[in-house]
Amino acid sequence: MNYEDMEFFAPGHRACAGCAAPIIVKWALKIAGPKTIVVNATGCLEVFSTPYPHTSWRLPWIHTAFENAAATASGIDAALKAIGKRDDINIIVFGGDGGTSDIGFQSLSGMAERGHNILYIMYDNEAYMNTGIQRSSSTPFGAWTSTTQVGPSKPLGKEEFKKPIADIMAAHRIPYVATANPAFLPDFKAKIQKALSIKGPKFIHTISSCTTGWRHDPSKTIEIMRLATETGIFPLWEIENGDFSKIRITYMPKQRKPVEEYLKPQGRFRHLFNEPEKIKEIQRMVDEWWARFEVKS
């Protein structure tokens, strides 16, 4: 059955205007349908969707703490199995990049290793946006955050590279790992659908633009996320059973746009335009990643 015309995520939540997280959630739930249990890590999504005494969720939803969303979901999986009702219920975890790459990583890794039948969706807004834009391990190279300030003695912002969380999850040899982008909606929907059809632990890494932390106009949310993929900074791929040699690129840009086009509209990268060699470095890293897949003519 098709649930695309139903809304399992109610309006009236307190997300900033132009937040991408509700777009990700509403589409994931439309694909999953009503027989779904949602587990939420602490983060923007948990805070803005459940301002007590209200909730935006029209499905069973549970939040325990920052670090154990995957452990909570593992418990639900085991409990449903014990009462013999496991077969047709989807368990979906939503975690931000902090709740996934940093704080929740141990329980996520455990969930993957034990082989629980759970879909983990990480919406990656690339910093701790909920508490005031502090850096996370998922913040990209060069980005300004409130804890990677930019000044005369430190012209760069974050000096470290983004943790490749989807690659790390694929290295767990779980059945399905993918990166997805809600701006490419048919691809996004197909990946959720595919993940839910596979038994075992699944991980989807989605980009999620944050108008407040990325410092861009709220109306540009989808446009900027689309540029992230079109410039090659956020490639869309899927890996099954941890087989990196069979990585499948699901969106191949005909001609990759220069990374400046993605960096320029975002205030968090504004200082990089005084350091053109750093932009060249980002471009070089992106080119290196794509070199495997692009045939030189």
Partner: peptide
């Protein structure tokens, strides 16, 4: 406040207009 602060009405943010 309900026991355990449980929320019993699904999708109730729809009562709060933004």
């Amino acid at each position: 406040i309900s026991r355990g602060a449980t929320i019993t009405e699904p999708g109730s943010t729809a009562l709060e207009e933004t």
